[in-house]
Amino acid sequence: MDEKASNEVNEKEIICVICPNSCRLRVSQDPKTKEINVEGNLCPRGKKYGISEYSNPVRMLITTMRVEKGKLPVIPVRSTEAIPKSLLIEAVKVVNDTHCLAPIKMGDILIDNILNTKISVIASRDIDVKN
């Protein structure tokens, strides 16, 4: 997404994904008061989404990790909560550079405190040892 800053108002167009209305939000921040203003939303949930997506967009980290001695070569993993969008690609690299060892149970913590976010990366399923 383009995050160009203009001199006066830093306005962004964000499509709300909370419901099928798909409101086109125009979100801007007052340079002096730092207040975030949302226009084009049909409901309060759109305002909340607009503010969060403008000030600190977050996404779940969902990828796979290499498994050693496992029945399968990779295991699906996820972050315990959404991480800042700007860290997503870097976080995937961290996961790709990490290997884990079978057996693994769903929920096992595979990376603790990824990129100092205080968020963990956990296993999405069990993987048994290869016979």
Binding site: I62, P76, R78, M106, S124, R125, D126
Partner: peptide, 11 residues
């Protein structure tokens, strides 16, 4: 949940 988590609960 993720897909594998949904499956694992049933499995």
């Amino acid at each position: 949940l993720t897909g594998p988590e949904y499956a694992q609960r049933f499995i």
